[in-house]
Write a protein that binds this DNA or RNA. Sequence first.
DNA 1: ATGGCTTCGTGCAGAATTTCACAAAGTTCA
DNA 2: TGAACTTTGTGAAATTCTGCACGAAGCCAT
Lengths: 229, 229
Amino acid sequence: MTQLQRRRIPDAAVTRLPVYLQILNNLHATNVLRFSSDELAALAGVNAAKVRKDLSYLGSYGTRGVGYEVTYLIHQIKRELGLLREWNVVVVGAGNLGCALAKFGGFAPRGFPVVGIVDNDAKKIGQTTGALTIGDVRNLGKMVRDLNITIGAITTSTATAQSAVDSLIDAGVASILNFAPIVLATPSSVSVRNVDLGVELQILSYYEQMRTEQTDGAKLQNKSSAVSV
Amino acid sequence: MTQLQRRRIPDAAVTRLPVYLQILNNLHATNVLRFSSDELAALAGVNAAKVRKDLSYLGSYGTRGVGYEVTYLIHQIKRELGLLREWNVVVVGAGNLGCALAKFGGFAPRGFPVVGIVDNDAKKIGQTTGALTIGDVRNLGKMVRDLNITIGAITTSTATAQSAVDSLIDAGVASILNFAPIVLATPSSVSVRNVDLGVELQILSYYEQMRTEQTDGAKLQNKSSAVSV
DNA sequence: ATGGCTTCGTGCAGAATTTCACAAAGTTCA
DNA sequence: TGAACTTTGTGAAATTCTGCACGAAGCCAT
């Protein structure tokens, strides 16, 4: 079974490929035809060897002494990421964020059209947001089948996020983009990506505090415990 | 210089601590007094040994045979992440997202009050959004000093994101939350966290495609558009 | 007290990731 | 043609992260 499936790309590399793609699209837009791993590394803020290794997971598409062709590499990254086709998205939770995502047209051109939005609130069901009518979360199964939906975005309240994801999984959706600040319980066959601004801010806070303390060390240094190197 | 600074917590652990904190806050809200590493691990979807190791970076705050105290651990995580004080945030870019962040009151109670919002568009400057008046990006330096701002959120267009971050860094801000789909060029002394839904969707797409291909091995695939493979 | 039970803290090994360093393979120019 | 130069692709070392396994330490019942 495993030998049928394509050679797996390391998770860490998978998270970088979309970033490379972004940059290559920009290069393409400015009529750049070729690039070297050094150039892409500089633009992506990573090590050049890492760029080469990441790209090598796609195949040997570079030319030694020359570099890589922008359009060709764009195609190869898209192929590998599954971006040569569209993936339909349903938004679960028609609050501020959910409606904003439904109205925001920025995902369709990038291959992720939002084709449905649902809620569990009878007052919201039937209303329209953007081009979509808010559906009943209880019809999610039929919706997923009829509209060929593969990705679900959770934009409900924290309290209902778990039941929302349960509904999605029941409906056969195995890719979840979760905006609720909660760790969802899902089987390992389901992919979840969490977007939590609170978490991001707290991570920034940690490093900011590190810097602050280090600076304070000059004036006052009683904080440091007994760490040496 | 390095020996003065506190024992560093591994990056991977730093990204998990806010998740633990979230869970512990929920436990606290439901009057749970104590928890074991096994329980927290189940709720966070990680290995119990990892939880114990992560928490051990804070110090030895557990009791063998018993577990950890919820409120005490909350305090310790907050201390380590620098959440015992507030960090003021400025939003750069008063578009849809920027104004939404400024109006959204959810960050202030978690220690990240949005105290300012700026733009470079003369038509927007002077307007109000929520409780804030949109300022001129050229006054960012004064604003950062006067309002004691430490974190900047980039919500500009892609085209102006780099100049926005340059202004922030000039103004002395070293923690950036970037919503623009672009890799920002910053000195290594600056922390950047990127929030890019396109990237997240594309990562999901990769794993979705993996699953699809594996399943298709049995049937036959006519759906995929112009893929060779 | 003592034995049994639970759970933490951590050494260590293995896995994953990053980075180095260099041969291989191509280009350019005289 | 061939020498100088550029850049890829990739073994292998270095680093980071994960997870097991178990001793240490506390609780409880008898």
